[in-house]
Design a protein around this nucleic acid. Structure first.
Lengths: 192, 192
DNA sequence: ACCTGAACACCGTTCAAGT
DNA sequence: ACCTGAACACCGTTCAAGT
């Protein structure tokens, strides 16, 4: 019966969402299986690795971030688009505690279930960065991976005790190291 | 016999240095005790917590960093002093993998064995920062904890797979968000 | 097909028992 | 005083056995 399996997978995912929200990305898988009322092997059958489970939890977030990148690129001047997207990224990346380390690791590890999503995130950010650089609004000596590293580090900081309330401020500081202040005229269009 | 105890503590420390160098700050304490040829309880007797053991490993490094801060403050212009010290800090903080998370956590946790050292580090950095700010060489909207957070995050990045070779570059980017470029005349002395 | 849970090889931490 | 190692309560991962 395939419907059993599906309902199990759904229940595991629902429970995982709560447990990971509470305990972070390194939450006990045993605990999740237990609370989902399912054998440990069943969890492993549906999600063969921790990354696979997290990927399932994060997929919506990732998709939304990619869509948002496209929207911003179309609607905003290059520097605003980049800045706004980075804010979102940092916020979303620590929806669950300790997820940024996994994301940064996943970008190097092609076998990780998170790999594709992270590469896609990097590409989305890189596109916004390239745009901003072309407009002279972002430092030229930086690539998508640098950007990913910086926002990853920022989101990691947000997970550390005592740092959460400083992330806004730290974001501004780091953003200041990426973006070049623009004297902007009324109409936002940049010349090529 | 107190000499037994001392020699045990020394051996534990020597082994811990190797194991932590290999496995990072979360190395297995059991493994350390085993390799030191000592019962697990003996390790706990001498080092009642992981932080206590790491503090012992890092004490020399910390002391050297503090001394170096004073030297730089006396010998270099404020911006150079800050920049050079930050470089050292980032380098030393990832002598052992994953130590930066513990350092940042320790600054909030007064009961941690690493607390005092970390507060002292922050104070040393804060003094250099204040100096640089007074000379107009560092952004004014930043305090010692922000500085600690940024270099902590940078050193964390250095521990992540694939990021090690970018740390130099990322350091320059972040340093650029802290320091204000100076038009410097021949003599380096800043006026009070 | 799908699920279960015991089995294995690990942890950190504590503490009775030994010298 | 100091040390030891078993005991306890946990992990992640695998896989034979069940339905």
């Amino acid at each position: 019966m395939r419907s059993d399996a599906r309902s199990n997978a759904d229940r595991i995912l629902a429970v995982a969402r709560e447990v990971v929200a509470a305990d972070g990305a390194n939450a006990s898988l045993r605990d999740i299986a237990r609370k989902a009322g399912v054998g440990l092997g069943t969890l492993y059958r549906h999600f063969p690795s921790r990354d696979a489970l997290l990927e399932a939890l994060l997929r919506e977030t990732f998709d939304a971030l990619k869509v948002h990148a496209d929207e911003l690129q179309a609607a905003e001047p290059a520097d605003t688009a980049l800045r706004l997207w980075l804010r979102d990224f940092v916020r979303d990346a620590h929806t669950y505690r300790d997820v940024s380390a996994l994301m940064i690791a996943a970008i190097e590890d092609e076998s990780s279930a998170l790999h594709d999503s992270c590469v896609a995130m990097r590409a989305a950010g890189a596109a916004l960065l390239t745009n901003a650089q072309a407009a002279g609004a972002a430092k030229p000596d930086m690539d998508g991976t640098d950007l990913f590293a910086l926002v990853g580090a920022l989101s990691w900081l947000g997970d550390q005790p005592g740092m959460a309330e400083r992330t806004e401020h730290l974001f501004e500081i780091v953003a200041g190291s990426i973006l070049i202040p623009q004297a902007r005229s009324d109409q936002g269009g940049a010349t090529t």
